Simulated assay, not measured.
Amino acid sequence: MADVSGRRRSRGVSTTVGYILNLTVALLLVTSLLAAAGTFVGDQRERAIADGLQVSGTQLAGALESVDRLAATGDDARLVVSLPPSVAGRNYRIQVRERSLVLTTENPAVRVVVEFQTDADVATKTVSGGRVVVALDAGANRLEVFATDE
């Protein structure tokens, strides 16, 4: 549109376009910050779960090694271990292997391996977190881990 002097008037359009551009840039910045914060929180949750699994695994590995030492002295070899039923709000499973424990969660999928040393063989089994018993099966000369409500 031209005024009486012949100049074009476009100020109204440039103000609106500038406002929309500023709003778009602000929206992109906020969205980027929220996405980065969400990733950070997810990573922190996985680290917390891994740390909790490591602690539980270390406790159970220590119990296995203690029962193994007790069995070598001929004493009654049985120990109740109170592990947390969940870590960071997630249930977990413990797969007992010959020389290691594999602790896992789902959603997020976290896996921690804790190794231990025993003279006696260890029965392979999977148990959930919570109270477990580590005992020597004297007839088979092997350590067993099983869940308990004691």
Rank of each mutant, 00 (worst) to 15 (best):
R99P: 04
S82T: 15
S128Q: 05
D68I: 04
S66M: 09
D51V: 10
E144H: 07
A61H: 01
F40I: 12
A48S: 14
T118A: 11
N91K: 09
T148S: 10
R47M: 11
A26C: 11
E65M: 05
S32C: 15
T124D: 14
V114E: 12
R8Y: 13
L79Q: 11
R111M: 12
S14P: 01
Q59A: 13
R11P: 06
P108K: 11
D149F: 01
Q59D: 13
Y19G: 11
L28N: 04
S32M: 11
S128F: 00
D3Y: 01
N91Y: 04
P108A: 11
Q44F: 00
S5Q: 15
A147K: 06
Y92G: 00
E150L: 14
L83N: 02
V41D: 15
M1N: 11
E98Y: 06
E106S: 15
R90C: 02
L83M: 04
G62T: 12
V13T: 09
L28R: 03
S5F: 02
T105K: 00
S66K: 14
P108C: 07
V102D: 06
D137L: 12
L53A: 00
G42N: 07
A109H: 13
E144W: 07
A63S: 09
S14D: 04
R111V: 10
L103H: 04
R11D: 13
P84V: 05
